[in-house]
Simulated assay, not measured.
Amino acid sequence: MLKIRKISILVWNLSTNDGIIRATLLGEALKRLGYEIEIIGFIFGQKLYKATPDGWKIITVKGTNYPGFLKSSWELLKKIDGDLIYAIKPQPASYGIALLKKLFKRVPVILDIDDWELSWHGGDEWKYRPSLKQFARDILKPEGALRRPEHPLYLKWMENLINQADAITVHTQFLYERFGGIFVPNGKDIELFNPDKYDSQKSKVHYNLSGYRTLMFPGAPRPYKGVEDVLIALDKLNQPDLKLVIVGGSPYDDYDDKLIEKWGNRIIKLTNYPANVMPEIVAAADIIVVPQRDNSAARAQFPLKITDGMAMAKPVLATKVGDIPKILGGTGYLVEPSSPEQIAEKIEWIFQNLEEAQEKGKQARERCVKYYSIDTMSAILAEIIQGLEPKRSKIY
């Protein structure tokens, strides 16, 4: 059997967090197994995503649209020298490159699917049926749609090639049912995210949150993530010391700025921080909120915010969407999606019964240690790599 010593984790765009966070979690789990790890990929933006972990071997190539993308791809292809490629997302700029390397060098490929990429474009309903004139525009004009490597037509082609991977990993039931594969959760570094190491009140002071009761959303707001439902709930409660703390903001658009424009009196926004600082920030939260709305994009995701809160023994208030109820396993508080009224009621209940809620947070920490740690990821990945044609594993 092939002796694997080095693994190249291929990320389609290292300019954003769209894949880099999942790549980092998988990389950390693989490092604990003794493998040499490199993260490699294109930069389609101006620079490397600022939350990329320090001290990791990261190889980049400037990403461009077609036809320049073909030259960039060849340049990236030559830089991949792992004994195994772990491609993040069925994107042409990650999985497509990985399949080319497999074709030329017979390097085994694992594909990780952490989102349903086509869900952003209408899912199964999306069709590309242009007129001849529109097709010519899309392919010939400098800004033509088909010049973008991430165009949904190419994503559809990549989905048709998923069975060419030597193994597939997923992290939600939705993705498993759609693509098969083996369940590898979004694990948490439970030693880094250890509430015993942090003082909640000191964190509140440090991040200018003292005097507030804080609902924390440690992520990038997008409409389907339901942040507006929390803000409407806060309007209903109308208690000035209740604040929604957004950590990081959206790297995709100005959506969080629009939220602040409308609900500036309810929001405190913190900037992006490296992963090793996040536990100190989460320590300042009274409640972690994960208010996903019910659509295919949300059902496909494993919200990292949940395990942030669970690992730090915080009460987690979330919606009954996708895998969220299974992840929490009775250790959090659940409401129906798109229900500000229920969110408001549950917020009020948690603060009126804070001691009980904090006890439930401790139970969430225990569940996170057992099922959602980096070590859990490592154990599953060890079996995958040893077999390379793994049997499907039981989920949860």
Rank of each mutant, 00 (worst) to 15 (best):
W120F: 15
P279Q: 04
K141G: 00
L259F: 01
L388D: 08
I232P: 00
G219N: 05
L140E: 03
V316Y: 01
K89E: 11
P130F: 08
G309P: 08
V109E: 03
L48I: 12
A298T: 11
F135R: 08
Q363E: 15
V289R: 03
D166K: 09
T64S: 13
I380P: 03
G332A: 10
G187D: 06
M310I: 13
K62T: 14
Q292P: 01
Y273K: 11
K362F: 08
K6C: 02
P218K: 07
L237D: 00
A220V: 02
A98K: 04
T214F: 04
W120G: 02
D138W: 05
G63D: 04
V61H: 02
A379R: 15
L270R: 15
V369L: 14
Q201T: 11
P130R: 11
L48E: 03
Y128D: 08
I162K: 01
K105I: 06
T24I: 05
I21L: 02
R365Q: 13
A344P: 06
K346Q: 15
A300W: 10
K57M: 04
I327G: 05
K105W: 13
K326G: 01
Q386M: 06
M1T: 13
P279Y: 01
T319D: 10
I380A: 04
H171D: 15
D18L: 11
Q201G: 01
K71Y: 14
R147T: 12
G96L: 12
A136R: 09
W349K: 09
K101T: 11
Y35G: 10
V230P: 02
S15A: 13
K101G: 02
D112A: 14
A357R: 07
C368E: 09
Q164F: 12
L25Y: 07
N186F: 09
A298M: 13
I350G: 00
G211W: 07
L270I: 08
N17C: 05
V290D: 01
I288M: 07
L155D: 03
V109S: 03
L242H: 05
M216T: 12
N295C: 12
K262L: 00
E355H: 10
W120K: 12
W157A: 13
A136H: 04
S72M: 06
W263V: 00
K71T: 15
Q301S: 14
L26G: 00
F302V: 02
L99P: 02
S296I: 05
A298S: 15
V369N: 07
Q91M: 13
K305V: 01
P340V: 12
K197H: 08
G226N: 06
R213S: 05
D286F: 00
D256W: 00
G329N: 09
V335M: 11
K346V: 06
F135C: 02
A136K: 13
I350L: 15
R129S: 11
I139A: 04
W263H: 00
D189I: 02
G249M: 12
G264L: 10
A51P: 01
I59N: 02
K47S: 15
P251A: 06
G249S: 11
L270M: 14
Y212H: 09
I43T: 08
V107D: 05
P337V: 08
S250W: 05
T319N: 09
W120S: 14
G34E: 10
L175Y: 09
P337R: 12
Q386L: 09
K204I: 10
K326C: 04
A29P: 05
K71V: 15
G180R: 10
V230W: 08
R299P: 11
R266P: 02
A23T: 01
E28A: 14
D241S: 11
